[in-house]
Design a protein around this nucleic acid. Sequence first.
DNA 1: AATAGTTTTGCAAATGTTTTCATAAATGGA
DNA 2: TCCATTTATGAAAACATTTGCAAAACTATT
Lengths: 342, 342
Amino acid sequence: MADIKAKQVDIVSVAKAANVSPSTVSRYFNHPELVKLVTRRRIETAVRKQGYIRNRAAQTIHGIRSGTIGVIVPTLDHAIFAEVVQSFSDTVAEQGFTILLASHGYDQQREYAILRKMLEHRVDGIVLTGLDHDDAVFRLIDSQTIPSILMWNYANDARYPSIGSDNNSAGAMIAEHLLSQGHRDIACMFPPTRGNDRAQARFSAVMETLTDAGVSVPDHWQLTTIYSISDSKRDTMNLLKRTERPTAIICGNDILATGALYGAAAAGLRVPDDISITGIGDFKGSAEIEPALTTVRIPAKRIGSEAGLALSSAIINPGSVPTGLHCEPILMIRSSSMQATF
Amino acid sequence: MADIKAKQVDIVSVAKAANVSPSTVSRYFNHPELVKLVTRRRIETAVRKQGYIRNRAAQTIHGIRSGTIGVIVPTLDHAIFAEVVQSFSDTVAEQGFTILLASHGYDQQREYAILRKMLEHRVDGIVLTGLDHDDAVFRLIDSQTIPSILMWNYANDARYPSIGSDNNSAGAMIAEHLLSQGHRDIACMFPPTRGNDRAQARFSAVMETLTDAGVSVPDHWQLTTIYSISDSKRDTMNLLKRTERPTAIICGNDILATGALYGAAAAGLRVPDDISITGIGDFKGSAEIEPALTTVRIPAKRIGSEAGLALSSAIINPGSVPTGLHCEPILMIRSSSMQATF
DNA sequence: AATAGTTTTGCAAATGTTTTCATAAATGGA
DNA sequence: TCCATTTATGAAAACATTTGCAAAACTATT
């Protein structure tokens, strides 16, 4: 059959059907208390019958909020970012916001382009992941009037309010834990720190804490391993093959630690009896692995929801600036670490 | 200081600065070939100087595409959904689309509400996860003119074009694998299937394949376990405590299988020598766990990008309908399963 | 230098809403 | 019943763009 003249339903067609003016229909949605009960009823039926759906684009050009928040992450592929985005999204959804999500794969150029696109969509707020961003990104946000926050890491001197964990604390915590258990022969396995402020901060905090305690880590016990279980398993096996073995390995994240656990097992060592292994992050599964991993929890859920709260309230009260918040990392002592044996 | 009269920059202020009419500025963006080179230059400088950012909302009310695609997932908390969303988003980003993402936490009411909101934003297309949805959801999409697809699962009789894996195949594949290895005493551990068409399909395909081969699974070897490593570890231990032990456990997903692996280890059994354990999904880490898990890979990356391709091309060529596509699951034979010993 | 043709630009209408202001309708008090 | 309030509605302007059409500015041709 010929195409049904699907005259798009808009507020005027609803108005016609309900025998009122478009203004009244608009009021029905935005200030229902101002329209008489019987009129309301009539409009309601018309809306139903026509299947009318409001057009936010048309509202937005009146300076009304778009109801969207731009969220930019490096990737969703790490469970940990997915978790923080999930809880952010849930939190702001309660305030009526929907998120516009994009990932840049650690490419700063792309981050800028994504940001521009989000601004074209007139998002009501912006969330970036981590503290470090291209200066052009910051300048672009500066030139806008919308609030924005940095999520995931915390630093009180960050360019924008930051909500997340301080990776320095996390690194220091785990180093202190191992020191307090009497470990002195400690190896470190970290991802490449270039362009990764989180890993960088963790690593330097670990080293500093150890140095302060008079413990030095020989160069050949400082491993740089990419984010991959199989690589870290291999590197760990190589490390443990040598005659001199550390009594503990501090890993920069739980993925590396998981590989290290497997590597130790493959090398015939028992964890934690022969060697202690720790991670940072407390990823899903880290508590259930055998042996359960001692790590520092970065409270992703909490970070996401605090960030969501802070940003949405900054949007709702224009003029107010969101405040940063440090979500303390939490030392999770489990079975993969224990008192050093002498 | 007093608030800077931040006169919002719009197309007219740019036009004024460049000494042209707003129409010309609009053309500069949309049909640059129609404007003279020198004028183009002048406009470009004005845009730069004022930091003008186009307003997509204003374009959208002219029937121009919004450049957004609505993606609705149950949750991002399962790495597997995060992965598929990631690759979908990357793919459509190449065509200039940004995704509007929301999760409903398996609540069909919420899914409907989210869908409405996305339609208010005038998304250019819609992606739902899985095949089953409230009828109201389908009807609402039917009443619109935008294309939509079901991502993650595949069925050729689905209500909308579906792109994903057939869970029946996945279930059958793994059951056949175990049968071909001579297993006859097989236990099953699946999540609750209510309201979860994926688990349901996997489970019934497994049972059917086994039955067809003359293998029956006694009731007390049919475990229903929620999606959690620790629960499945516990249930596996209880199962293996009995005097009669299966030679294999088919788990409905890799998380359950991981827990089963731990449970077997805790029960003092060697995998795969004493018992074979299999999963479905091939989650991150499943290949690296000890022993490496035999499972069926649901190709999340491929599904995401195929879905992105299909939907964006359906959007770009209006009138065309996206076509469904079966992304074959892939049997990944690793170390957690082997020939049954008699 | 005049004409015809082409390229470039501007005017004005249109898009789907919201909102201010004014008017009409209902209500209450005398 | 009349007037003053209060409540409910509509008309029209505004929002930031795009676009069809027509006018203006060029080019090329003679």
